[in-house]
């Protein structure tokens, strides 16, 4: 695997007590943390604390250590095109079903932008996509995908299969290898045989098929739990595979748990339940704290 896995990229940033300059710096003048003479340059003193751990060269531009000295003037925190809006998305694949779910909280730093922005997108009767990461990039990505999916359907006269979509997402992400789309995608759907399938990606398009994948700020909390409780990894005696209803309950449980420990996960969850009958959408509430 030539590319860093998304989980490495997704080390949660530790919020500091400084009010994030990304949030307000230029917008309301100099940062809280700036000292000394102010003036038109004062705003430049702002140092980004809420740096998303963005891929490669851009992480420098937005991290707190990125301030560069221009001549003898004050330090400049350059514009960062990336923000991390948090949130958790996941997908589970059963024998004849798939569940795609994401919470609806959208944050930036300590601020909750909105409590109702779903991360799940229905593609067709056989699959849905969920995305965490940067909302603007994710929205743009889904627009690009929707366009290419529509073109495919017009040309081929049939809906796109989950496998084809999986490859399309990868190439779409990789096209932006050197200005990555800061979105972490998971696809859930049924394959050509009607078996549940899940594909998980990193920001630049590396992907693999699995039966359960978590993306976003809750990854480190939920992925090991699901590995154990859905895939029964490390169990010497494998219990029976979870049924659809048991899987739905598990999804609810893990989201409630993520909501307890991860400040970026909460408010509510939108869940797409995909079976041979199509996609059913369910929502349930999480704590809003």
């Amino acid at each position: 695997m030539a590319f860093p896995m998304q989980r490495e990229l997704y080390l949660p940033t530790v919020p500091t007590l400084t009010v994030s300059s990304q949030m307000h710096s230029g917008l309301s003048g100099p940062s809280l943390g700036s000292h000394g003479p102010s003036g038109p340059m004062a705003a430049r003193l702002a140092t980004g604390k809420q740096a998303p751990v963005a891929p490669s060269r851009f992480s420098a531009a937005s991290s707190s250590s990125a301030a560069v000295t221009v001549g003898s003037g004050p330090k400049t925190a350059a514009f960062s095109p990336y923000v991390l809006n948090g949130g958790t998305a996941l997908a589970l694949a059963g024998k004849d079903f798939c569940i795609v779910a994401g919470d609806t909280r959208m944050s930036a730093g300590y601020e909750i932008h909105t409590r109702n922005k779903p991360k799940t997108y229905r593609i067709n009767d056989k699959c849905s996509i969920a995305m965490a990461g940067m909302q603007a990039d994710a929205t743009n990505l889904i627009k690009m995908l929707r366009f290419r999916i529509a073109m495919y359907e017009r040309k081929m006269g049939k809906p796109m299969s989950t496998q084809s979509l999986a490859q399309l997402v990868s190439t779409t992400l990789y096209r932006r290898r050197f200005f990555p789309i800061y979105a972490f995608v998971v696809i859930g759907g049924l394959d050509e045989d009607g078996v549940g399938s899940v594909y998980g990606y990193d920001a630049v398009g590396s992907f693999e098929r699995s039966t359960c994948c978590v993306q976003g700020s809750g990854t480190s909390l939920l992925q090991p739990v699901l590995d154990n409780q859905f895939d029964f990894k490390n169990h010497s005696i494998k219990p029976d595979e979870l049924t659809l209803d048991e899987s739905i309950d598990l999804v609810k449980d893990v989201f409630v748990s993520a909501g307890e420990r991860d400040i970026y996960t909460g408010d509510s969850v939108e869940m797409h339940i995909i079976t041979a009958d199509g996609v059913r959408v369910e929502t349930f509430d999480l704590k809003r704290d």
Binding site: V19, M23, H24, F79, V83, A136
Partner: peptide, 22 residues
């Protein structure tokens, strides 16, 4: 609704920018 310099956008019942958001 809300839009910002990174292209982040959403709609909500209330919106605030700058220090107002805190």
């Amino acid at each position: 609704g809300y839009v910002d310099l990174q292209g982040t956008h959403y709609e909500d019942e209330t919106v605030a920018t700058g220090y107002g958001s805190y």
